[in-house]
Design a protein around this nucleic acid. Structure first.
Length: 456
DNA sequence: TCTGGGGTCCTTAGCCCT
DNA sequence: TCTGAGGGCTAAGGACCC
């Protein structure tokens, strides 16, 4: 899908069509997740710090991501792909490999092209969104083709033309070549795929390592025999938070780690897994990142066990100077089993007891729980220490609302006790803007409306 | 106002065992 | 008995992707 998040926002908010839309974190440390093609003309792109995006494109619409809606749209598109073939390998919410041959819908260039065009039309009809299709004999080439086809296009790489087509392209075109490898190769005088192929496998292995070098060489020749794999098991589950302001207070840091551990376990359980290795991630004030991990005797999905392991790992980390990000993850996933849970839980209790005896009160057992289950990082105490008389309703930019009198709309902005709402919906004409008090009883949050279909 | 969040895969190094 | 090679496991870090 093309500029997926931004396109979904434009489809659901008619007044944003044709405008620069930037979706991403709106806090002081946010980055751009997706920029619409209109915004890209200003130089805004994914992974750019939000502050820089705002300087480049001050009149853009800045929205936070609405993953629930994107997932709904993604489910519709993925279902359409699965009608083409049983072998569909999703890469993300907006991208997937499909083995058309396995589905029996395409066996030569013409039938593949026809299937691709039909798919693009069907996706547009079902979602109102445009997608791009890359057709080729392998996953790597299909990926390159779909990138070349964007936006709203279709590209088929004819068998036999691969090397010729790839040769003049930048090495950065190849999946797996990012800024670091790109720079590494550039220093060796290699900037195009053709030069990569000429360098030879031995030379590439020497430069970037065995696995990467061999893979790069094969890609440069247009060779890739990886199959499309429909079912891929998750290998890890993790959560992390970047804080608006660096954390210095050790007690607060411990509390955040506990909160993250709980969130991680909820996700772990939600996916039906338990895991054996607990990972703590700490990004310090200077952006240096370190991880500490601990492997348990058996898999667990017990929040107490994960909390304790994370707390132990934190004790081994120096946080003086401040912490900008904390994360907790679980790897070594296994299918959830009750026995594992009990075994680990009792072991952890015994260990916790032992730990209490050997260290003089520095352990995590007696920590205050004030921040556990509390507000997220952007709503934490560093934001404002002033006491609030009544909890003020928060209206985040881009979120859906419904007004008793004016119907469905979305929050365009809020501040100083006011919230501005644009009343429009997918399929309507661009709507009018009205401003209300933030506590207006006639205004309520609502669920996103479908992008296509019934406009009641 | 410099740099998110959730993943995967690879490399290196140390340790233990055969 | 000593030594070395090599495999498996664990830990840490880095690159990359969307």
């Amino acid at each position: 899908m093309d500029a997926f998040y931004a396109s979904v926002e434009q489809a659901s908010k008619p007044s944003l069509r044709g405008k620069a839309v930037i979706v991403g974190g709106l806090g002081p440390r946010g980055v751009v997740a997706t920029a619409s093609y209109e915004a890209r003309r200003f130089g805004v792109h994914s992974a750019m710090p939000m502050g820089q995006a705002r300087r480049l494109c001050p009149n853009g619409a800045y929205l936070i991501p609405r993953f629930t809606l994107y997932r709904q749209v993604s489910d519709i598109v993925m279902a359409m792909l699965r009608e083409l073939s049983p072998l569909v390998e999703p890469l993300s919410l907006d991208e997937a490999f499909v083995d058309l041959e396995a589905g029996g819908v395409a066996f030569d260039s013409d039938s593949a092209r026809a299937t691709g065009e039909r798919l693009r039309a069907d996706i547009r009809a079902a979602t109102g969104l445009s997608g791009s299709v890359g057709l080729a004999g392998s996953k790597m080439l299909a990926k390159v083709a779909s990138e070349e086809a964007k936006p709203a296009g279709l590209l088929l790489i004819e068998p036999g033309t691969e090397r010729e087509l790839l040769a003049p392209m930048s090495v950065r075109t190849l999946p797996g070549v990012g800024p670091a490898t790109g720079e590494h190769l550039r220093r060796a005088g290699i900037t195009t795929v053709g030069e990569l192929a000429e360098a030879g496998e031995d030379e590439l292995v020497r430069m970037v390592g065995r696995a990467h070098g061999a893979g790069l060489y094969r890609m440069a020749l247009g060779l890739d025999d990886r199959p499309v794999v429909a079912e891929r098991d998750a290998k890890s589950v993790s959560v992390e938070d970047t804080f608006d302001v660096d954390l210095h207070d050790r007690v607060r840091i411990r509390g955040e780690v506990q909160r993250l551990a709980d969130r991680c376990v909820r996700r772990l359980r939600g996916s039906g897994h338990s895991g054996r290795t607990i990972v703590l991630k700490v990004r310090r004030y200077d952006f240096s990142t370190l991880t500490r991990s601990e492997t348990l005797r058996g898999p667990t999905d017990d929040p107490a066990v994960v909390r304790e392991a994370a707390a132990r790992l934190l004790e081994a980390v120096d946080t003086t100077g401040g912490v900008r990000l904390l994360g907790v993850g679980v790897t070594g996933l296994a299918d959830y089993t009750q026995e594992d849970l009990f075994a680990q839980s009792s072991a952890a209790e015994a260990e916790a007891e032992a730990a209490e005896h050997e260290d003089d009160g520095a352990g995590g057992a007696a920590e205050p729980e004030a921040t556990v289950g509390g507000a997220g990082p952007s709503e934490g105490p560093e934001r404002s220490a002033e006491p609030q008389e009544a909890p003020e309703r928060r209206w985040t930019a881009g979120s859906d609302v419904r007004h008793v009198l004016y119907g469905p709309g979305w929050v365009q902005g809020s501040g100083v006790g006011r919230v501005t709402v644009r009343f429009e919906q997918p399929g309507s004409e661009p709507g009018r803007v009205r401003t209300f008090r933030v506590d207006d009883p006639d205004l309520a949050p609502s669920d996103p409306l479908p992008l296509v279909g019934d406009l009641s």
